[in-house]
């Protein structure tokens, strides 16, 4: 059982606050992804959980045990580093065996566990090599194998795929998902890549400016972003935003197009994902500016009242720059944000 509880954790570097009193609980065997832009504090949070950084405030509990005063080695964790940190002076075998040797595991057991994890990661033929003789992808596998060999209760990963090229990343992502599901460890995974997050996570915690702004299942984060930031950060192309004027009685006017929304008196911001738009008789009036046929669909960048507004349309549709379109939101897909607090308003 390894529930991870983060209680009121804050981290300050001099005058800079990297984390503002974060609270979060990660369930046993859950795969939690910390997603955010670089410098948002996600790596700091991971390093605090690992014990590589001391929190300025707050507590970390792992498996019902308070660990924030303990060094990394006493926390029952294993970690995969961004640059892999495969020891250059040791063979692959000794790298994977490193943690087990620290625990004074008997030799035959070390051999068994190293061989098994090496097979799991498909590196059994590399065991006698040194890190300098490995490709980036192979080093990555060694780093993961080294963590898995520990059979840790908690496995922490800091952007483990960010240094691989695109194709390899896709392959490793799928493999990692399978291997980690097998390992039955609680996992925390830091990334800035939303696709990676969506693909791997049981739950995504979106980190922004040192705060967790939303922690929910991937589809929930995607469909119902809690803040304007989450909406704009997740999804490619990003969510569209337009100012909406209240017409009273829950009717709203967006660039002259009238639609039903929440009941509120002050102006709100209307938001819609590009793929949730369809050309219709009545809709938001838009002028096509750039048309990009991307294969599976057509990305049209339009202008609505001087603002950029994107729509993803079927690839068969013929649109040329200059065309006037009317784009209607699909039912139930429009979202509303308070422009002052930038938080979502339920319709």
């Amino acid at each position: 059982m390894a529930i991870i509880e983060i209680k009121n954790v804050a981290k300050r570097f001099g005058a800079v606050t990297a984390l503002h009193n974060v609270d979060m609980t990660i369930a046993d065997k859950e795969f939690m992804v910390l997603l955010g832009a670089s410098g948002c504090g996600k790596t700091t949070l991971l390093r605090i959980i690992a014990g590589l950084e001391t929190p300025s405030e707050g507590e970390i509990w792992i498996g019902g045990r308070r660990v924030d005063h303990l060094p990394p080695r006493q926390r029952g964790i294993a970690m995969v580093f961004q640059n892999y940190a495969v020891f250059p002076h040791l063979t692959v075998f000794e790298n994977i065996a490193f943690g087990l040797r620290m625990q004074k595991t008997p030799q035959d057991q070390v051999r068994r566990r190293v061989t098994r994890t090496a097979e799991l990661m498909h590196i059994e033929q590399l065991l006698e090599r040194y890190s300098g003789q490995l490709s980036g992808g192979q080093r990555q596998r060694v780093a993961v194998a080294r963590a898995l060999a520990m059979e840790p209760e908690v496995i922490l990963m800091d952007e483990p795929l960010s240094n691989l090229d695109a194709l390899l990343r896709l392959e490793m992502r799928a493999e990692l998902k399978g291997v980690l599901a097998e390992a039955k460890s609680t996992a925390i995974y830091v990334t800035h890549d939303q696709v990676e997050a969506m693909s791997l996570a049981d739950r995504i915690a979106v980190v922004h400016k040192g705060r967790i702004v939303q922690a929910a299942e991937p589809i929930e984060v995607y469909r119902n972003p809690a803040t304007r930031f989450v909406g704009s950060f997740i999804g490619n192309p990003p969510m569209n935003f337009l100012p909406a004027r209240a017409d009273g009685g829950g009717r709203w006017s967006v660039a002259g197009f009238s639609l039903q929304g929440p009941t509120a008196e002050r102006p709100l911001e209307f938001a819609i994902r590009p793929e949730d738009l369809t050309p219709a008789e009545a809709g938001i009036p838009a002028i096509a500016r750039v048309v990009e046929p991307l294969g599976p669909h057509l990305l049209v960048t339009t202008e609505v009242e001087g603002q950029t507004f994107r729509a993803v349309l079927e690839s068969e549709r013929r649109v040329v720059p200059g065309d006037r379109l009317h784009l209607a939101p699909m039912p139930g897909r429009a979202r509303w944000f308070d422009p002052e607090t930038e938080t979502a308003i339920a319709a």
């Binding site: 060094p71 990394p72 294993a78 020891f87 490193f98």
Partner: peptide, 27 residues
């Protein structure tokens, strides 16, 4: 010598001195 190597050794069960001895010193 990347800090990560030492940190990796810590997470794998080394003390500060142990990590220095096992990882930094040979390098």
């Amino acid at each position: 010598i990347p800090m990560e190597l030492e940190e990796a050794a810590w997470t794998l069960g080394c003390t500060r001195i142990g990590a220095f001895h096992k990882v930094v010193w040979p390098l």
